[in-house]
């Protein structure tokens, strides 16, 4: 999952980015002011935007209004040092999804961030279930038909992203975009290697119990990957190579 952090206080931003990377394993981009944040939100389809309210150049409310003005549906978590119900009401009415008052608890911030991402993708419970898979997003563990599967952090993140949207074709570019922040080199063959390993590990979990089982992650040649459908023809072939437009339509 990729998160945009818009925060002008550099030490706070450092800590938040570190916590979001270390804890739930999100890819975090940091913008130091409102204009930069707005600019970055236009480039990438973020799974969550953590937005400070008092920002130089363009304040948090302004960023939020621009975001919602162009129909961007990314969940937004506001960080505010302001007191008073009025400003909170104004924020929520302007399209914010949640807020945290400074000084906040880091654990709470992470929990809310996860919940917002989950909700943004239509899941209500932190444990995701699809196609015999069980992904516990809190413990970051995966079971297939009850058998634990040991995954590397990147493999887990790929699986988590795919499980959030079963039966949808996810392009390699979209995967890259949501798993890595700006500081990573983007190579699609990295994804291919990780998906290949992931598929092997998931198959290994089944052993020879159900050799007839369809592969969980299907490769759609030239288009990307999707969690295998229960029956052919049911797939909603909506993904495209333009990840921004594709994700927007899917959410």
């Amino acid at each position: 999952m990729r998160v945009l952090l818009v925060e002008d206080e550099v030490r706070l931003a450092d800590n938040l980015a570190a916590a979001l990377r270390d804890g739930p394993g999100f890819a975090v981009d940091w913008a130091e002011d409102g204009m930069a944040g707005d600019h970055m939100a236009r480039q990438v389809s973020y799974d969550l935007i953590v937005l400070d309210l008092m920002l130089p150049k363009l304040d948090g409310l302004g960023v939020l209004k621009r975001l919602r003005g162009r129909q961007d549906r990314a969940p937004v978590l506001i960080l505010t040092a302001k007191d008073g119900a009025d400003s909170i009401i104004e924020l929520l009415n302007a399209g914010a999804d949640d807020y945290l008052a400074k000084p906040f608890d880091l654990g709470e911030l992470i929990a809310r961030a996860k919940a917002l991402i989950r909700r943004g993708k239509g899941a209500a419970h932190p444990t995701l279930r699809a196609l015999g898979l069980e992904v516990n997003t809190l413990e970051q563990t995966v079971r297939r038909e009850g058998v634990p599967v040991d995954l590397s952090p990147t493999e887990y993140r790929i699986l988590e992203y795919l499980v959030h949207r079963p039966r949808v074709i996810v392009s390699k570019r979209e995967l890259l975009e949501h798993l890595y922040d700006y500081n990573w080199e983007h190579h699609s063959n990295v994804i291919e290697a990780h998906v290949s390993n992931l598929r092997k590990k998931l198959d290994a979990a089944l052993g020879d119990r159900d050799a007839e089982a369809a592969p969980v992650i299907e490769t759609m040649r030239g288009r990307g990957y999707r969690m295998a459908p229960e029956g052919p023809g049911e797939a909603h072939d909506l993904a495209s190579d333009e990840p921004k437009a594709g994700t927007d339509r899917l959410r």
């Binding site: 706070l12 800590n15 040092a81």
Partner: peptide, 17 residues
């Protein structure tokens, strides 16, 4: 209040991190 809360938030988040 904003400055102080932010500064406290930094200290708190550093420790929690």
């Amino acid at each position: 209040a904003h400055e102080l809360k932010t500064a406290v938030a930094v200290v708190k988040s550093s420790l929690q991190l």
